[in-house]
């Protein structure tokens, strides 16, 4: 899987109010930002709120960004903190029907299986498993990098990842998905 490589200079340019850099950064990262927020909050409205706040925060914090070689981890930490704040503030209503609407938006016939995989991930995995699988799927990060972002031991990430995929496969088997 290709790793999502984000050019650090985009953040540095963004600190200089460079609109083009912001656009490029948004285009490269919006899917991951939203997907990661969804994996934590499991509610599309809350995920969209966090996505909005995250990009504002990324922009306003660009001036304090210290090049570390992993700008994506910096962005994802911002997203995670905003999600956790939302949860702490009790503003999240985890609602699977919300998520059903989300999957319902994918009505392209070629996307039926995509939709089923997403449904499965959202319904059978626990919060940490969802985050690990989504980050792995969308960023291609190594388990060690995911462990750092989620503040978990690498071994935990690895075992949860394996367990999560097994659970998903089993669930899809019962739904009769064959490839």
């Amino acid at each position: 899987m290709a790793t999502l490589q984000l050019d650090e200079n985009l953040i540095i340019r963004m600190a200089s109010n460079d609109g083009a850099a912001f656009r490029e950064l948004y285009q490269q990262t919006s899917g991951v930002v939203y997907g990661f927020a969804m994996s934590i909050l499991r509610n599309k409205h809350d995920a969209e709120d966090v996505m909005h706040d995250a990009f504002i925060k990324i922009y306003s914090s660009a001036v304090t960004y210290r090049p570390s070689g992993n700008p994506m981890a910096w962005i994802l930490t911002i997203v995670r903190n905003l999600c956790l704040n939302k949860i702490r503030a009790g503003k999240v209503c985890e609602d699977l029907s919300e998520y059903d609407d989300l999957a319902g938006a994918l009505n392209d016939s070629d996307a039926v299986l995509d939709r089923m995989v997403l449904e499965t991930a959202m319904s059978v995995l626990d919060a940490e498993e969802r985050q690990i699988v989504v980050l792995h799927a969308m960023t291609g990060f190594r388990h060690r990098e995911i462990a750092e972002i989620l503040d978990l031991p690498t071994g935990t990430v690895l075992s949860k990842y394996n367990r999560a995929l097994k659970k998903m496969k089993k669930e899809m088997e019962t739904k009769g998905v064959e490839r």
Partner: peptide, 23 residues
Amino acid sequence: MIDNNEIEKRLASALNAATPDIL
């Protein structure tokens, strides 16, 4: 049987498609 790679690819594709455009 669907494999890990395909699960991840489809999951990413579904989430990307669901991402709202707020640029």
